[in-house]
Nucleic acid binder design. Structure first.
Length: 259
DNA sequence: ATGACAATCAGAGATTGA
């Protein structure tokens, strides 16, 4: 089973690029972030015609996550538990029914800039809620994964110019520590576990020729529970599509699971 | 040092992003 995560930066603007990538990459499941659309505005039928079940958790203008799946989805839930007053659409879960069922969580972790400030407080609060949900997934002792735009540069080697991010919410020590707190519950980060060489990125800013200069950062991650990690065959980044027509500033990351 | 660039909503330019 091939499961991908992709921050598309707007479903309306990305419809051609996303469609082309789906046809090339043929993921069974695609976890999408930043759809920037309400549920009713999502081009559901377009993807249903491509054979995908479509589940969205949308929001006007900003944020918004979705799951496209060629396999049946069950027990879909929307929103990260822990704060009913949180109106930002950044979390969606479902169980993918393949040979063995896998719980998949698609997430769009808050950016947090500027730090310090209320947006950074929100990021850290959100990560505490993430840790609680992550602990539940570990305790369940079943194959599960959390994938998406974590907005975390986990180590200096995940940025072409780490010095430029020293005071950024994506790379502050407190941010990295909060991320490690989640990983250390027992998760396997799929990409680094299967790709030993450094210098791979998932985001290149639109500005200042970042793609042409390969001035990127790696902030889109797959975290797998132990029984899910046992199923991991491969994890890759489809970086080439960053150079295609009208691209997102992120590129897809995907895992191949033996399931 | 700032803005660069892109998307959204709205119908200009502010806001957000990372």
């Amino acid at each position: 089973m091939k499961i991908a995560t992709f921050n598309i930066n707007g479903i309306k603007a990305r419809l051609p690029a996303l469609t082309n990538w789906l046809q090339e990459a043929q993921p069974d499941v695609a976890l999408l972030q930043e759809i920037k659309s309400v549920d009713d505005g999502f081009p559901r039928e377009h993807f249903e015609d491509m054979g995908y079940q479509v589940e969205t958790h949308g929001q006007k203008s900003f944020n918004g996550v979705a799951i496209l799946s060629k396999l049946p989805l069950e027990d879909i839930t929307r929103g990260l538990p822990g704060d009913y007053s949180d109106e930002q659409a950044r979390w969606i879960e479902a169980t993918v029914i393949g040979k063995s069922p896998i719980r998949v969580c698609g997430l769009y972790l808050p950016n947090g800039n500027p730090a310090p400030g209320p947006k950074y407080d929100y990021k850290l609060d959100w990560m505490l809620r993430l840790k609680k949900r992550a602990q539940e997934l570990i305790n369940a002792e079943e194959p599960a994964l959390m994938a998406g735009d974590y907005n975390i540069i986990a180590q200096p080697e995940d940025a072409a110019k780490p010095e430029a991010w020293a005071l950024d919410a994506l790379h502050l020590p407190q941010s990295r520590a909060a991320y490690r707190d989640v990983v250390n519950l027992g998760f396997t980060e799929a990409f680094t576990s299967h790709n030993l060489e450094l210098g791979h990125y998932t985001f290149w800013d639109y500005q200042a020729g970042s793609w042409q200069r390969n001035n990127g950062i790696r902030i889109d991650h797959f975290l797998l529970t132990p029984s899910c990690a046992d199923l991991l065959i491969e994890c890759k980044i489809d970086s080439n599509i960053r150079g295609y027509e009208k691209p997102s500033d992120h590129v897809p990351v995907w895992v191949q699971l033996e399931s």
